[in-house]
């Protein structure tokens, strides 16, 4: 087991190194003038030449790469060409908002997706099952941006129940001291017992949260349903049933346990998907997260920022994959 984990970590690092190298090379191959970007539009040739030296762009590419890796090992991702701020500092400012929405969506997926799958399996081919399957397929196949716009139209424009976007209302932003401990507003306001802000943050996260959650909810519900149905057809379930054990007990005590492996794997992997999906959703809901940040970085070819976000996303993926593998490995029936 230890050997397996060690092996997985090493491959993870190799993958990350590959991602960094490819992104670095791509950023240099794409025609761009980082020095001109650094000094801003309409800079003079002298200013650009100065910036080139300052950023070390006058050095050969292998040297630049070596410098980049050296800085990276020190936890320094460089400075954004556009804002001139350290990338690590900017990522730290944007990541909590993204994590908050991803975790919110993840919790919804667990709370709604798993029970939905269970009931669907239990009521196989009955009305509830059809409705649930229709919902699951719909939520997986509907494009998230469409859902986002639709929810905005209904809940903001027509009903006026929920805000259009942002993390807090204008009044809260201006007239209240918003706590900043983890950067996740829901958590921070709870820690400081600031329920006014909690309420405000909560109503702001509902629409983007639901949009983000829809895909994993559908996926998890479908996965739970099919895994459960498969288990319920196993011989051991038939023998438990033959002892006269109640159907509820069969389902919850004996069957469900054996479906949790695949469900947890799907759930973990969908978390990675959610992380990327949120990039699009954030723009629509003016959610000040990583997606919003990377969208600007890409359109302005701010390559240190692009590499920074890529490294963060890749790291998340590698870690989540590792966790998914470990969950499978925890199953005593699987030998590594």
């Amino acid at each position: 087991m230890k050997k397996y984990i060690f092996k997985r970590i090493i491959t993870g690092i190799i993958v990350l190194l590959g991602v960094i190298t490819i992104t670095f090379i791509m950023a240099r191959v794409i025609p761009s003038d980082p020095a001109a970007k650094w000094v801003g539009p309409k800079a003079t040739p002298e200013q650009i030449a100065m910036a080139e030296k300052e950023l070390g762009l006058d050095k050969p590419m292998p040297v630049q790469y070596a410098n980049y890796i050296r800085d990276l090992l020190k936890g320094n991702l460089g400075r954004s060409l556009r804002t001139k701020q350290p990338i690590t500092q900017e990522l730290a400012a944007y990541i909590p908002a993204t994590l908050e929405i991803v975790i919110f969506g993840f919790l919804l997926a667990v709370i709604i997706g798993i029970p939905l799958g269970i009931y669907s399996a239990k009521q196989k081919d009955k009305m509830l099952d059809h409705v649930s399957r229709f919902f699951s397929i719909g939520s997986v196949s509907l494009p998230a941006f469409w859902v986002a716009l639709f929810l905005q139209l209904v809940f903001y424009k027509k009903l006026g129940l929920l805000p259009l976007g942002g993390r807090l209302s204008l009044e809260t932003t201006i007239f209240y001291n918003v706590p900043d401990i983890t950067g996740m507003l829901l958590l921070d306001s709870l820690i400081t017992s600031n329920f006014m802000i909690f309420k405000d943050a909560f109503i702001h996260i509902i629409l983007p949260g639901i949009t983000i959650a829809l895909y994993p909810i559908g996926l998890v519900a479908r996965m739970t349903r099919s895994a459960l149905l498969e288990v319920l057809n196993e011989d051991y379930i038939a023998s438990i049933r033959s002892y006269g054990v109640s159907e509820t007990k069969v389902l919850w005590k004996y069957a469900l346990k054996n479906t949790l492996g695949p469900t947890a794997t799907v759930l973990t992997l969908s978390l990675g998907y959610t992380l990327v999906n949120t990039f699009l959703i954030e723009t629509i809901f003016s959610w000040p997260g990583l997606g919003n940040y990377v969208a600007t970085a890409v359109t302005t070819l701010d390559y240190p920022a692009i590499i920074g976000v890529t490294i963060f996303s890749a790291t998340c993926y590698v870690i989540l994959n590792l966790i998914a593998d470990l969950i499978i490995a925890l199953d005593p029936r699987i030998r590594l």
Binding site: L159, G160, L161, L162, P163, S169, L170, E171, I174, F175, K199, D200, F202, I203, I206
Partner: peptide, 25 residues
């Protein structure tokens, strides 16, 4: 969820309180 959403909907879409009187967005 519905309680929180329901009771605070009005408050967020309308400028509330004295302080918000001369606020420009």
């Amino acid at each position: 969820v519905s309680l929180i959403a329901g009771c605070s909907g009005g408050g967020t879409t309308k400028g509330g309180g004295e302080g918000a009187k001369n606020l420009l967005f």
